[in-house]
């Protein structure tokens, strides 16, 4: 569906994107994650053919989006821009009908789209009366028109409450199962759902990491923390046991904190479990997505080590 090879884009001297290679096939969902200004929107515009890359090749739906003849393929693309303000004077239904007509679709079956985004009750109200979340959902309904083969959503969950956000992920999942390729962008990794297959992290125009969320966590080697509560004596014993291998510290008497590299997590846990029966509690904290993301987003990788938080 999407094949990018060595894409670069520069505005004058400023490099907006550098050497991006990405693929997305149908039935997959890829999340493009990065801070504001990392180049997500630029990359999406290149995929849509709205911008020409300075270097590299783009293939979308087996065509070149920069080509004039690509217009035929656009019928099969659903897109939601990062920020879109529909005409306030038109009703939701008129807005959706306008876009449906442009795709050559019937305007009689619009109710199903309104239903999917929970907007059926407000379909005949003017867009000017909509809340931010409702406008966002109208935009998503617009992107779903005509069952696209490729769905590109730029920050689809912004302005949505948790319930609506879950609904969006449900819809994306449905589209995925129908065989669509889904590309979404987000500036917060934590907002992403498990239903995302792959994540590509952009930082300062470069692709710094790519893979499933667990893979990314593993790759960067971020350490998990193990907090063990036990008697003083056991604590002392644990401390002497691990002190030379991994960072171990004791903040309070009766508590030991071990910092384990991802590869040794299970092994260390096994050793600790030997004290079974004499330990009151074990609390294992994996790095949060937020921390993984921050680790990748700062160009210096060593900063990714989980600090003494």
């Amino acid at each position: 569906m999407i094949e990018l090879l060595g894409i670069s884009k520069s505005y004058g001297r400023k490099k907006a994107l550098e050497g991006i290679s990405l693929t997305l096939s149908n039935g997959q969902c890829l999340a493009l994650v990065g801070h504001n200004g990392a180049g997500k929107t630029t990359l999406i515009k290149i995929i849509l053919g709205l911008l020409k890359p300075s270097n590299g090749s783009v293939a979308v739906l087996h065509g070149d989006p920069g080509n004039r003849s690509f217009n035929r393929n656009r019928r099969h693309i659903g897109f939601l821009p990062e920020q879109v303000l529909f005409q306030k004077t038109l009703t939701g239904r008129e807005t959706l009908a306008f876009y449906a007509r442009l795709k050559g679709l019937s305007v009689k079956t619009l109710d199903t789209y309104f239903e999917r985004v929970d907007l059926l009750g407000a379909a005949d109200r003017r867009v000017g009366t909509y809340s931010k979340g409702m406008r966002q959902r109208l935009g998503i309904a617009q992107a779903l028109l005509g069952q696209p083969k490729l769905l590109i959503l730029d920050e689809p969950t912004s302005g949505l409450d948790p319930v609506a956000r879950q609904n969006i992920y449900k819809i994306l999942d449905e589209e995925k199962r129908k065989g669509a390729a889904v590309l979404i962008s987000s500036h917060v990794l934590t907002e992403l759902d498990d239903r995302i297959d792959r994540v590509a992290i952009l930082n300062d125009g470069k692709l710094v990491a790519q893979g499933s969320i667990p893979t990314l966590r593993h790759q960067i080697g971020m350490h998990s923390q193990m907090k063990i509560s036990a008697d003083r004596e056991i604590c002392r014993e644990l401390m002497t046991m691990f002190q030379n291998e991994i960072p171990a510290r004791s903040q309070f008497a009766g508590e030991v904190i071990l910092t384990c590299p991802p590869a040794r997590k299970v092994e260390i846990l096994g050793k600790v479990m030997a004290f079974r029966g004499r330990i009151q509690d074990i609390e294992l904290t994996d790095p949060t997505l937020e921390q993984v993301f921050n680790a990748y987003s700062t160009s210096d990788h060593s900063a990714g080590e989980l600090s003494d938080a």
Partner: peptide, 14 residues
């Protein structure tokens, strides 16, 4: 300005 131009150009329209 409203962001609808980007959207419109993603549609099959010249």
């Amino acid at each position: 300005d409203r962001g609808t131009l980007t959207l419109l150009l993603a549609y099959p329209i010249t």
